[in-house]
Design a protein around this nucleic acid. Sequence first.
DNA 1: CGGGAACAGATTGTTGACAATCTACAAACT
DNA 2: AGTTTGTAGATTGTCAACAATCTGTTCCCG
Lengths: 235, 235
Amino acid sequence: MVTAPPTDALELLRSQSLTTLVHRELERRILAGVLAPGDKINEEDIAGQLSVSRGPVREAFRALESSGLVRMEKNRGVFVRQVSIEEADEIYEVRAGLDELVGRLLARRIRPRELAQLRGLLKQMQHAARDKDVDAYYPLNVRFHDRLVELTANGTLIAAYRRLVNELHLYRRATLARGADSFPTSTREHADIVDALARKDCDRAGRLLYEHAMQSRERLHAALDRAAAPRVKSQ
Amino acid sequence: MVTAPPTDALELLRSQSLTTLVHRELERRILAGVLAPGDKINEEDIAGQLSVSRGPVREAFRALESSGLVRMEKNRGVFVRQVSIEEADEIYEVRAGLDELVGRLLARRIRPRELAQLRGLLKQMQHAARDKDVDAYYPLNVRFHDRLVELTANGTLIAAYRRLVNELHLYRRATLARGADSFPTSTREHADIVDALARKDCDRAGRLLYEHAMQSRERLHAALDRAAAPRVKSQ
DNA sequence: CGGGAACAGATTGTTGACAATCTACAAACT
DNA sequence: AGTTTGTAGATTGTCAACAATCTGTTCCCG
């Protein structure tokens, strides 16, 4: 009896609406860079590619707009959002504020087992840094910070943080400056952060994370200047 | 010639889609309490009331879901989101973090003219406090804090903050504890905050705002305990 | 030769109809 | 009596067609 594949597909549609699936797929494409900032997204194309009608696609667009990944212009279409350097600065500032909060909350509640996890990640990052392997370092860096936020167990904080990270992702895509803030420069800073967490020093963990985020911003700026960065039009 | 009313209506539709208008109207109703937390919202009802078809209504629902005001269950409908006390605690924590950032950023950039505005608001709040006029005090309090955020001129920060405030609004609606954190207790704190801003003391302004937000949370808790608060089911 | 009106094609906005699912109530069975 | 099954109504999910708007091109006129 052939049951597995159709059961899977039906089970999927029983719990998820087409809109949700379209939403996820578009989000994936945007964050993976298949759809680049500024690109126009055609309703009918997407509908055709995913074999659904335009209704679910339009609903997915609305959700993506609210979460800041696309911009809709009436009667003109939807575009992958372009994050200007000014906006990126704003986002970095807010992310720094959230990161400080993360440090403060986490230092109070973190458990040995979780600390060990972080140290494991840290070790992998140090290896990648020694090898100057930016392609390996970058996702580890993202995972490290995401894990920190996740460990706060504050769902609101996690959602707000991820949203900002997504938007910054768009900015890096637009400027082609992906690895800029993930240069091994920050290895020392990460270790200090974990130390402060281990000692349950709330204020220090918060301050270190705040400064780390702000320095990420500076590093990105510096990288852009070095590269005589191509200008990004403000939205 | 009768031109004014139809011109207005057409002009409105030329720039705004029906979805946007439905979105705004639903948001208004939710925040005004016409639609209470937990209420089920019927697509066809809304479509009928606003004289549009179900398409724009569904799109508006998606946007509202992304901004945290409603919850959608497949094949069951959409409901005004209920914010549990645990979630409210989370939100308060994040808001405190953002408020701290607001204080720090604002102390650096605030101008005399803007300080004067804040002092004007402060004065009105003191009057309302003296008169124990909570109905007057509550919106002033909201405006005061919103103005602070607005003056940072950081669009990302403003958006993130307002979103949280909206969600807290839902919580207060659900628990009927509206005035709890707006009791004149906090008048002194507000004055201190403005002073710190005036002296451009970034750290102090940040710390005061953080503590003010966390104390708002405590006040709300206390008010709920006093009232032997009705339990709110977690989502 | 340059600028603007007019047209055609493509794309989005909106609608109404159809299919799938859920909810509530009633009847039948143990 | 309690539980279960079945059915009818209501509600949501999806689709395809129609209307309105935009974009780019062509043609005409100065």
